[in-house]
């Protein structure tokens, strides 16, 4: 199935016309980022991967979870129900689409035993109204390493619909999920059964000397955790949250109250394990009191905790943490060390 570029435009304009939220790569302040578009022409097509992942549209950086009024001897409390808008992410990359499995596994961890207690519906409800239309990458940049962590520039995991560019500049359409099939059915008029040759997809090189299986196995060894090399690899780390906030799978958050006078909100805000205050006890004790311990935690989370607890990949090889790091701390170097 093929959707012509012009029909894709009609489709997008129709979706917007119906009041739906269409998220796509746009150019802002010299950066390509996922954002809500007002028209098809807002979309930037010349990009490898936007600077943010689209996780912020499923798990916003800041959101209210409860509101209250504080009276003299009473409190009026109300849970927030997120305002949902049907959302279409157009132009996701396969790595980002795959990352939603990681987020979902954390936000539903324990829900099998007790959904009323362990299911984060703020995430799940947003996911429930979101359709992911991924566009396979034609090529990566030097920081892309999806093929090293078991994905490819055309992996369907996590996408509802996978689009691949044709030599004529149109897109071959492959529905992946039931949701994707229903979507394609709904918009069938814009999609033809023609065939067109696909543009060639250039896979990022699989990095020799990196073996995620081996990394996981070595991280299971408590002694590897104590290896002094961690101190060396993370010495230059400045402890900012650029990597975690750019990462499509990082999910940590804080819960804070913000009140003015007698009313306020409880909010759920992104937080980062790289911050010194993340684990600081009120007593002053901090289990991860130096930066290398915090950096090691992030790495352990991606390559050991996720795979063993959530049976999903904690790192999708999008390369954002490498691109964004002010001190060029390259996660692949550590992956290589642990593959030895």
């Amino acid at each position: 199935m093929i959707i012509k570029r012009n029909d894709l435009k009609r489709l997008v304009e129709d979706l917007i016309g119906q009041g739906k939220r269409v998220i796509a790569p746009i150019m802002r302040m010299g950066l390509v980022e996922y954002g809500e578009i007002g028209s098809f022409d807002d979309i930037t097509w010349d990009y490898i991967n936007p600077r943010n992942s689209f996780k912020e549209f499923l798990f916003p950086q800041t959101e209210a979870i409860a509101r209250y009024r504080i009276g003299k001897k009473d409190v009026e409390l109300e849970g927030v129900i997120p305002e949902l808008r049907e959302t279409i992410v157009l132009g996701s990359r396969p790595c980002d689409a795959a990352s939603t499995a990681s987020l979902r596994s954390v936000f539903t961890w324990g829900a099998e035993e007790d959904p009323s207690r362990f299911r984060d519906d703020f995430y799940l409800m947003r996911e429930g109204v979101t359709t992911v239309m991924t566009i396979a990458c034609l090529k990566g940049d030097e920081d892309c390493f999806c093929t090293t962590v078991g994905l490819t520039p055309e992996s369907p995991e996590g996408s509802d619909i996978l689009l691949k560019e044709t030599v004529r500049g149109n897109f071959a359409v492959t529905p992946v999920t039931e949701r994707g099939k229903a979507f394609v059915e709904e918009w069938r008029d814009y999609i033809t059964d023609e065939r067109e040759d696909l543009k060639e997809i250039e896979y990022p090189e699989v990095l020799e000397g990196i073996d995620t299986g081996k990394i996981g196995a070595r991280l299971s060894d408590v002694d590897v955790f104590d290896d002094p090399v961690w101190q060396e690899v993370a010495r230059k780390c400045i402890g900012c949250g650029a990597c975690t906030f750019s990462c499509p799978t990082c999910h940590c958050f804080d819960i804070v109250d913000e009140a003015t006078g007698y009313e306020g909100e409880r909010r759920k805000n992104w937080d980062a394990c790289q911050f010194e205050y993340f684990t600081l006890h009120a007593s002053g004790h901090n289990p991860r009191d130096t930066q290398f311990k915090r950096w090691r935690n992030r790495f352990l989370c991606k390559f050991h905790i996720y795979p063993t607890k959530f049976t999903s990949t904690g790192c999708v090889g999008c390369g954002r943490c490498i691109r964004v790091c002010p001190v060029a701390l390259d996660i692949r170097e550590v992956m290589e060390w642990l593959s030895r």
Partner: peptide, 9 residues
Amino acid sequence: KCGLGKCGR
């Protein structure tokens, strides 16, 4: 923070 295995700290 969460007490529920989500907030990650």
